[in-house]
Amino acid sequence: MKARAYFGVEGLDRIISQGVSYGSQIMVDGDTGVGKTVLAGEFIKEGLRCGDVCIYVACDEPPAVMRYHLGTFRVGTRAYEEAGRLIFVDAYEEEASVEKFHIADQHNLDKYFTLEKELLKRFAGQRIRLIVDSLSTLFTPFEPAEILEFHRSRLKYLRKNGILTLDIFVDGVLGDRVMMVASHFYNVILKMKFGSSATRPVRILQVGKVRSGKFSSTPYMFGISPTFGILVATELEV
């Protein structure tokens, strides 16, 4: 049977009960501070335990932040890094980076794509999870047409090569039209939002796919536990 992949988040994995195939692309679109990077951490943890190679491209913070985050969940990142199973790509510090893999110039999508492809080729034949956190940051300086052109060819390449991809987008960074068109290229879309509540903000998660130009899916409440990570209340539809 062909391998299926999961997020490593119990409630979320129950929602996508069949999992996703390697070669799928997942878009995570969410508010600032809602827990997108936490979700990325869960996705990496799950991949490492399942024997995947995980490549994390850190655009919004240095890779040390994700190392620290994984450390709080007792993941010994060094062992995986030394074994070539966990790769951090620093797209944050640019020239100042001390990481083995870094992107010196964030303002060149072609260079980025070349590096991404080179890196992926090194692990050809293995199951790979690629996480870009956040892709919207990389896209910021570019025109919509450039973004969509790059995006289409990149995702086509990733799909063809069986790369399980998790692209993170910070809500509001890119225009609505770009987001709408870009979202069509993904197999699965996860929306993570803050919802309104009379007493305090609540986190809401929706999993689905854009169909007929519209995204509609059941919203679920979720929380973030410092011990257990993301907890999705599948019994509590909003």
């Binding site: 040390a64 190392r67 994984l70 450390g71 709080t72 010994g76 060094r78 062992a79 030394e82 011990t227």
Partner: peptide, 14 residues
């Protein structure tokens, strides 16, 4: 099992 020092500086919750 591969054991290495944890230099992330992280303190696991709880």
């Amino acid at each position: 099992f591969h054991a290495l020092p944890d230099e992330s500086g992280a303190q696991a919750a709880g």
